[in-house]
Design a protein around this nucleic acid. Sequence first.
DNA 1: ATGAAAGCGCTAACAA
DNA 2: TTGTTAGCGCTTTCAT
Lengths: 340, 340
Amino acid sequence: MKYKATTIKDIAKALNLSTSTVSRALRDSHEISAATKQVVLEYAARLNFQPNPIALSLKERKSHSIGVIVAEIANSFFSQIINGIESVANEQGYTVIISQSHENFEKEVRTLQYLASRSIDGLLISVSSATNDLQQLKSLHQSGLPIVFVDRSVEDIHTHKVVVDNYQGAYNATIHLLEQGYRRIACVANSEHLNITKERVGGYMAALQQYQLKPDPQMIKYCFHGGMLLHEVETAVSELIKLKPKPDAIFATSDKLTTGCMRMLKRHKIAVPKTIALTGFSNSELIELLHAPITVVQQPAFEMGQVATELLLQLIESKRPVKDFKTIKLQTRLVSPDNK
Amino acid sequence: MKYKATTIKDIAKALNLSTSTVSRALRDSHEISAATKQVVLEYAARLNFQPNPIALSLKERKSHSIGVIVAEIANSFFSQIINGIESVANEQGYTVIISQSHENFEKEVRTLQYLASRSIDGLLISVSSATNDLQQLKSLHQSGLPIVFVDRSVEDIHTHKVVVDNYQGAYNATIHLLEQGYRRIACVANSEHLNITKERVGGYMAALQQYQLKPDPQMIKYCFHGGMLLHEVETAVSELIKLKPKPDAIFATSDKLTTGCMRMLKRHKIAVPKTIALTGFSNSELIELLHAPITVVQQPAFEMGQVATELLLQLIESKRPVKDFKTIKLQTRLVSPDNK
DNA sequence: ATGAAAGCGCTAACAA
DNA sequence: TTGTTAGCGCTTTCAT
C-alpha cells in the first residue's frame, strides 16, 4: 500500500495556477505577487505540502545524504563520533547513512559499493582494521566523490583528515604506567595496517625509550581484526603471560582491545592492577564501573565527528575542486578513575 | 565538485541505440535480441554502469529506504537491534536511515517529521520514554506510512509489534532476588508512559506478591527520561537509600537504569550486592566486567531487529492494505555472571 | 526487435 | 507577474 503525498501539480490545479508559479511562490521568489504567494502558501500549509526530496535530488543531481562507514556502532567511540556527525549534518539538511564494516574488509568493500550506488554526496570513513587494499576507495575518490577520513585514515588518499594525536596519547598513557613504577610494559595493538596503530605503538616505544627501556618485539602483539574476534585478544594475552619474566602492565591501543584485555585477564584470574596493570584507549562510559577501574586515553569523539562533517560538507558544497586539504589533529585526554 | 556517473543515455548514444532498448537489455527483457543484449551488457559492465537509484525512486515512487528511530545507538540494546535491522534490510536492497530521539519527545517529533519528508518507505520505531503525544505518529500511520514497533510500542496504533515478554522477564529477575533471600526489593523504572514500564513493573509486583510481599509505592521510582539524565537516577537512588528500613535490593527496568543505579550505588559507596543487591534489564557486553558482576535480563535484540524488519518489508511490499497485524513476543534470558 | 514519447515531481530558462 | 517548456535518469506503453 502506498502513501501518496501532495504535489505541486495538485496545488496548481486546485488554485488554477501553473506549476512554476506555485513552485516560485513556495520558494518566495520576488517575481510572484504577494497575493498569489499568500494563497499558495496557505493552501500548501493546509495540505501539509512537502516537496518531494527525490524529485529535487534528481533535478539537482544531489542526494543530500552522506555515507558513514565505521567499524561498529556498538562501540562507544564510534557512536559518539556518529552523534557528532549527525549534529552537524542534520543541521544542514543532510541525511546520514550509517554503515558498519565490522572490521571486515569484504564487508567494507560491499558497503562502499552500496553507498556509492545509492549516490551519496560524500563519505566519512574510518577504515576497518582489515583494510589493506585501497583500490576501490581510490577510484571512488578519483571519480570525484568527496571523502573525509575520521580517526583511521590512509596515507595514499589526499583529502581532509580528522585525527587525534595518537603518538602523544599513547606516549602519555605509557609514561603514566612508567611513573607508577611499571617497567615491563606490553602492548596489545590493533592491526599493523592501520596508521593509528603505527602512531600509537610509536608513542608507546618513545615513552619506553625515555626511561631507557628497550622495546621488546615479543611484548607487542598485533590483532588484525582489532579485537573484533575475541580469540585474537585471547592469543595475545595468553602469549604475553607466558613470557618470562611476565609483563607487569599492558597498554592497549583501542577500546575493543582494552576491554578485551580486561576480559582475558579476568578469565585468567589475574589481578588488575596488582599483578598486571592495564591502560589503553577507550571511550566507554562504563569504564569507571569496571571491576578494576583503569586509566584510559579518551578521544574527543563527538568533536571529531563534527569537524569531519563540517569539512565534508565544505567539500561537497564547494564550487571549484578543492586542492588544499587539511589534517586536523585533536588532543586526547588521559582519564584516571579518580580525577573526574 | 560533482561526481557524474554513466547514464543509460550515454550508453545508448555510444552504441547507437535508443534508451529504451538499452534499458530493456539491461533488465534482460525477452524482446531484445541476444546480440544487442550482449553488446549493451558488455559495454555497461565496462563502464561500471549503475542505474541511478534516485531516478528509479522517482519513477517507482519508492525510496527503498526505511527509517529507524531509537533512543540512542550508544546503547548496546539498540545497537544490537540495529544490527538485526541492517542484516535484513540490506539483504533486500533497502537503505536504513538511523535516527536517535535521545529520549526527548521534541527531538523525536522533529526526527519523525524529517524522515517523513525524506520519503522513507516505512518506519521502525521504539518510542522515546518521553513520548506522551501520539498525534503525529498516528497521522503518519493513517496517511499510509507502514510502521512497525520494536520493543517500546504504543497501544493506540494498530500495526505489527515486536516485543519481549516484559512481564515474565521482570518476574524472573525479581524471583531470582527473592530466591536469594532479598525481601525489600525496590524498583527503579523507566517512564510511566512506556508500556514496557507497566509490564515490567507488573512482573516485579507479581513476583513480590507470590512471596506474600506487598509492593510499596515508595519503593518504586520512575525516571521520565529513562536514565538519560543521570540526575533522575541520582534522585531515585538517593530517595531509596533514605528509606527506613532501606531496600536490600534494586530491580532496574532498563539498561541505562541498571548501569545508572550501579554508578549511584558506587558513588554512595554502597557495596553491591552485599549492602544492596542489583539486577535489571541490560544488553551491555561489559556487564561481566563490572566491579559487581550482576544478574541481568537480556533481550534478544538482534532477533527483534530482524523480525521487525521482515514484518515492515512485508507491509511495504504488500499489494493490498494489510489488516491482520501481529504482535510477536520473544522471550528474555536471565543471565548470571557465572552461568555463561 | 527496436524506437518514440510520456511521465514520475520539481526547477529554471525562456516567452508572453 | 505568470505560463510554457524542457530536462534531470529511468521505465513503459504504444508505435513501427
